[in-house]
Design a protein around this nucleic acid. Structure first.
Length: 621
DNA sequence: ATAGGGTTAG
């Protein structure tokens, strides 16, 4: 055993804080000639303690010179994994190519390591898949370690829709006989669930002999990420009935599901679940809980949770959750104050922070502040992305500065996406600008031909300027393509009860009573001065039908039910999947005054707090 | 000698 190795071992056992790489560079600096008799285990130790790209490269070159790397796939794999860890897949690949070139290597191990290196590196999905395909062409067999890496690549969001390829590889795993391996199955469940292919995910999941918490979590998060949070709740009950115990990750996913649904009661239930099970509340879970309280209308608790974090432990993500929470409730000034405090406390804002701040400015109509913020982000070298442009266009557009919004779009250094044009289209609908709206719509129909919302917006713009012919054409087009206007849906929660209402709902068990209550409310509203806004209905109806249709909007049914069923003075919490229409917004303001109740509504875009006849959004939404 | 799940915007 060479001297250096003995010394290293000795030193390390006595002083474990000493990094052998440091000693090694010391040795090189004094020209100790240890390299010629260095051994595999010597390098093994060095590689294990390499703590950065520089030290890795330092070890790499003598390894090549001595020729040891060509003899040891073990060392080669360590180098590959090391380079991958420090974000250098290209260097990893050169080691791999060198080894494959000189060794005629047929074991799968090195290939797996290299595929993993690509799978973990950002933006290397294509390389990972290409290597997998090369592996098969070179007659090296993929094994139970290979498939999970490949499925993870197919599941990764940067890789677009790789689900088809995933299915092909799934077939290959079946033929190779690895499809009932626990890890392969878990990776498959994750991949299918991630892409919302619940049938296939379920098929793999159901036939797993050993169904563990990881696979359950994959299914649950798949549902939540694909907008099916209520399915996640159902599955969670199923999990409870199984013999698998939920863990802190399960709780995190479920808290996020409640945030999505806007259900404070369920959110609290899962918070208690975390406490009862004594789960460690790490930073992520803490943030998820804060976010849930903010998104369920309970800003006070979100704020308290934020304050319970030791100030020195507050990082960008905890600030981001708080800032976005205040922003979506329309508290523009407070949001900007928090943004300043964040910077004063030395936390660097990131792209998410700026999205939240810009959107807060948009909600609160703080145009100048928003413009400043957009300039500031570029000074802080946070590159504006499409979502930031979308927020600014939204902000300018809502404030009626449509031309400025269009000018900004034209100045963008990359092609605007659907979010940007969508913001402009919405602004055109609010301000009734048919010409600009047409420009935005043409782009959107090209970019997202299947997105129903844009057609609905454009037809609203035509309708507002009485272009019935064009309204008809658009509707006919949608009908031909089988596109349906998304159904409005409102949920009201009180005590232990949750009730959902569609537009003109006749399925709710108490719909007849609710309809009677709505009629009573309509009379009270008129007496108080509310004028029904008939523009919120389809044009080809009789006038009286229009008024009736307005009264059956889902939020009116839900609020009527709330007024019937809850004690006077109690705050009413509503969640709606789409934006509130003008007529409902006005009606809710009057109702909050007539019944002297606070009504909190989370619509598809933001919160409205109705109290004493006014709304926290100042009619700006 | 290599393997699986998670939050934050709109």
């Amino acid at each position: 055993m060479p001297l250096l190795l003995l010394q290293l071992r000795g030193l390390l056992s006595r002083k474990p804080f000493l990094n052998p790489c440091f000693l090694y560079s010391l040795g090189s600096a004094f020209s100790f000639s240890y390299i010629p008799d260095s051994t595999e285990s010597h390098y093994d130790l060095l590689l294990k303690s390499a703590d950065g790209l520089a030290s890795l490269r330092q070890i790499h070159s003598p390894l090549v010179v001595s020729g040891i790397v060509s003899q040891s796939i073990h060392l080669g794999a360590q180098l590959i994994a090391g380079y991958a860890k420090y974000g250098e897949p290209t260097s990893a690949r050169s080691v791999f190519d060198h080894l494959i070139g000189c060794r005629n290597e047929t074991s799968s191990f090195l290939w797996n390591t290299m595929i993993r290196a690509y799978a973990n590196a950002a933006g290397c999905s294509y390389e990972a898949l290409e290597l997998y395909s090369l592996m098969r062409r070179t007659q090296v067999s993929p094994n139970n370690y290979t498939f999970p890496f490949v499925f993870r690549v197919c599941a990764s969001s940067e890789a677009g829709s790789l689900i088809l390829l995933g299915r092909v590889v799934h077939g290959e795993a079946v033929r190779a006989g690895f499809d009932s391996d626990l890890h392969v199955e878990a990776a498959l469940v994750h991949m299918y669930a991630k892409w919302g292919e619940f049938g296939d995910a379920r098929k793999v999941f159901d036939k797993m002999v050993e169904r563990n918490v990881i696979s359950w979590n994959s299914m649950l998060s798949g549902y939540t990420q694909n907008g099916q949070a209520s399915e996640a709740l159902i599955l969670f009950d199923e999990m409870n009935d199984s013999n698998v115990e939920a863990n802190a990750v399960t709780a995190l996913i479920m808290v996020a599901a409640c945030a999505y649904l806007g259900s404070l009661r369920l959110g609290r239930k899962f918070h208690n679940f975390v406490i009862d099970r004594n789960f460690t509340v790490d930073k992520n879970l803490h943030n998820a809980l804060m976010d849930m309280y903010a998104k369920c209308g309970d800003l006070k608790t979100a704020w308290e949770m934020f304050n319970s974090i030791n100030p020195s432990m507050r990082d960008a993500s905890s600030w981001n959750v708080l800032i976005s929470g205040y922003g979506m409730h329309g508290h523009g000034r407070e949001t900007l104050n928090m943004f300043s405090r964040m910077q004063a406390e030395g936390v660097d804002p990131n792209h998410i922070t700026f999205t939240s701040v810009l959107s807060a400015c948009s909600h609160a109509g703080l145009v100048n502040e928003g413009r400043q913020c957009f300039d500031e982000m570029q000074k802080l070298s946070v590159a504006p992305e499409a979502k930031h442009y979308a927020c600014v266009v939204d902000m300018l557009g809502r404030a009626g500065k449509l031309q400025e919004a269009l000018d900004l779009i034209k100045q963008m250094p990359f092609p605007p996406n659907d979010a940007v044009w969508g913001a402009l289209l919405l602004a055109c609908k609010i301000h009734g600008n048919k010409e600009l709206g047409q420009i935005a719509a043409d782009k959107l129909f090209e970019l997202q031909p299947g997105h129903t919302g844009y057609y609905v917006l454009m037809s609203n713009i035509y309708a507002a300027s009485q272009r019935w012919g064009e309204v008809g054409n658009l509707r006919q087009y949608m009908k031909n393509k089988g596109m349906k206007k998304p159904a409005a849906f409102s949920v009201i929660e009180f005590g232990e009860e949750i009730h959902g209402f569609h537009t003109a709902d006749r399925e709710h068990p108490y719909w007849e009573e609710v309809y009677r209550e709505v009629e009573i409310l309509a009379v009270k509203l008129k007496m108080a001065g509310h004028v029904p806004d008939l523009s919120c209905t389809l044009h080809d109806m009789e006038e009286e039908d229009k008024e009736l249709a307005l009264n059956l909007h889902s939020e009116k049914l839900a609020v009527a039910f709330g007024i019937m069923r809850t004690e006077s003075g109690m705050t009413i919490y509503l969640t709606k999947n789409l934006r509130v229409c003008n007529d409902c917004h006005s009606a809710l303001k009057f109702l909050s005054h007539i019944f002297d109740r606070e009504i909190v509504v989370r619509d598809g875009n933001r919160f409205h707090h109705f109290k004493g006849g006014v709304c926290s959004c100042n009619d700006y939404w």
